[in-house]
Design a protein around this nucleic acid. Structure first.
Lengths: 143, 143
DNA sequence: TTCGGTGCAAATTTTTTGCACCCGC
DNA sequence: GCGGGTGCAAAAAATTTGCACCGAA
């Protein structure tokens, strides 16, 4: 589970690189932390719950910034729209069930062997943390 | 490499399910076969090379149909836009290099072990044929 | 002849951009 | 006060949809 982010740490990350700390950036990051996986749209909605009005363009711009800083990442959990998630917790691979849309998480170490094989056979270094695997979960297969 | 598709076979598939055989459908399928991996946009361009004017809406509708018939598949090779490929040849996993945008192909069997592991540990049956792995190819890593 | 398929244009949806104003540092 | 950040509105993509007409079976 995502630890409550250490605010000092990411505030530091921003400043180090010469970026400013704004309430919008704080709100967007908090929303991503809380939602787990969320599209820009969903992030906006979450932020609005807390009443503070933030513009959708700012959400896009902020997510892009946070990603460039390594504070969030995105993957494609559905055929449309990227979804962002925090990197404060463990990195993981997303297992998306086509039946129920549920998202399971697999530990990166489960892909070590695969990574080594792709490296050796294709000279390809996979970015496993960005990986999304589609398929069917146990419940949906049995149903 | 993709075999020249046996036209009788897919024409049969269409009729079996009560769909009509139209020149547009023929052109779109041929374009996908030829391109290997292509976005709807690229398919349209390819079709237009052969002069026959086909509308972009028809491309979208046709790709959707062909996919429902199992004649093509799509994956997400870039952050934007799905790419379609034929299923007449071997199924494979796409390895997309972030550096040069090149797309390598890995054999499905390379993922057997992974599939078994995910099945056992998460009860999850991966759809490996839909998989896309992002990363860095040998050339770009060394560069 | 029939009704599924297509073209066209307009509507949606999602993301990007230009620019004037605002506020963190 | 300076210069990066934000809001807003308009522009750009990328898809989808309604509808009248066309042509495969």
């Amino acid at each position: 589970m995502p630890q409550p982010p250490d605010s000092r740490q990411w505030q530091e990350t921003l400043r180090e690189r010469g970026y400013r700390l704004t309430p919008q950036r704080e709100l967007v990051l908090a929303a991503v932390e809380e939602l787990g996986h969320a599209t820009p749209d969903e992030v906006l909605a979450k932020v609005h719950e807390r009443s503070s009005a933030v513009n959708i363009s700012t959400v896009y711009r902020t997510l892009e910034l946070l990603e460039s800083l390594g504070l969030v990442r995105h993957t494609h959990l559905t055929d449309r729209a990227p979804t962002y998630h925090s990197r404060s917790g463990d990195e993981h691979v997303h297992l998306v069930c086509r039946g129920c849309e549920r998202v399971l998480e697999a530990h990166l170490s489960e892909f070590d062997e695969l990574a080594a094989a792709l490296q050796q056979r294709h000279g390809f270094t996979p970015d496993v943390g960005h990986l999304t695997v589609f398929g069917t979960c146990a419940d949906c297969r049995d149903a």
